[in-house]
Amino acid sequence: MSTLPNKIEETKKVSRQDMAFCLSRRPETEQVVFGSSDAQLYELNLAGEKPEAVAFEGEGHSSYITGLARSGKGNFLISGSYDRRLIWWNAGTRTRVREIKDAHAKWIRKVVASPDGTLIASVADDMVCRLWNAETGKLVRELKGHDLETPHHYPSMLFTCAFSPDGELLATADKTGHIVIWKVTDGSMVKALEAPTMYTWDPKARRHSIGGVRALAFSPDGSQLTAGGIGKIGNIDHLGGKARLRTFAWEKGETLAEMESDEVKGMVTRIHYHPEGKWLLALGGDHKGLAMIVDTTANKIVTETRTPANHAHDFVFNESADRIYVAGHNHVTVHDLRTA
């Protein structure tokens, strides 16, 4: 869908007792795999009338599964968990292939595949990004450029990462709003950016923090980078801040736009650009789900709305970018994007 959509219509909902944190779709199908708070991976064929989730087999994770990526040839699904492990799965047989037990020293927050599917990037609260060979599971490179602690002496968190469309760059972002862009081939640091409004430190009333950059996406031409999160938050007991996006012309280190929602509160957890780059979609939420559509030529939020389902943690487009598959709190849903 290249025209700017302004309506997000839920067409299918699979209610769950658990939380679905991450999701991968088998290309050209309605079949998705999602990672759950019950430490299982499930396959779900959303083309069916009453989709039944089928659990992957064999010894898996022991905590929330928060990252899921598909290797280039589509043979493997690679999952990452708060249990610090990465597990390679045979996507066809839903069986375990290999495990990297100590892939990270702390919670793994996100796992993504490079555009050609040959590399897997994982980020974790040990503040390290690691690149892995998607086929062999061999460690290729470590990227270290995020501080272990916040400026207030508390543990920081490395939430998210995203490859550039040509696969040459990787962006990583942390709790304090620090973003680093890396050259994938040699691990050198290309650029550092800041999104400080996405980090809320309350020095007076509650003396802890909340927020951080939770989502990153490069524009299809690679010139822009959009970060998503929440902030500033008055009462950090809740996710009661405005959903927030910041778009950079990253090579110049310039902020092109900081966009906050006037309509919906909550945290942006996932961003995808439309393949032609004319708009982007951001999802997330507080208790409820939220969706924002941004006209990327004007860098302006054109649609901001609550979604019928709860907080959304992850989503993917179909090939024509007129349908999304969403993993969230107590649900997996399908939504069609339309122009009213």
Binding site: R206, R207, I210
Partner: peptide
């Protein structure tokens, strides 16, 4: 007093920050 633990949102991250302390 160590305030404020009232983690209605992001309980696990709040506790990741405050429990080690």
């Amino acid at each position: 007093a160590r305030a404020w633990w009232d983690s209605h949102g992001q309980n696990f991250e709040t506790h990741a920050e405050m429990v080690p302390e």
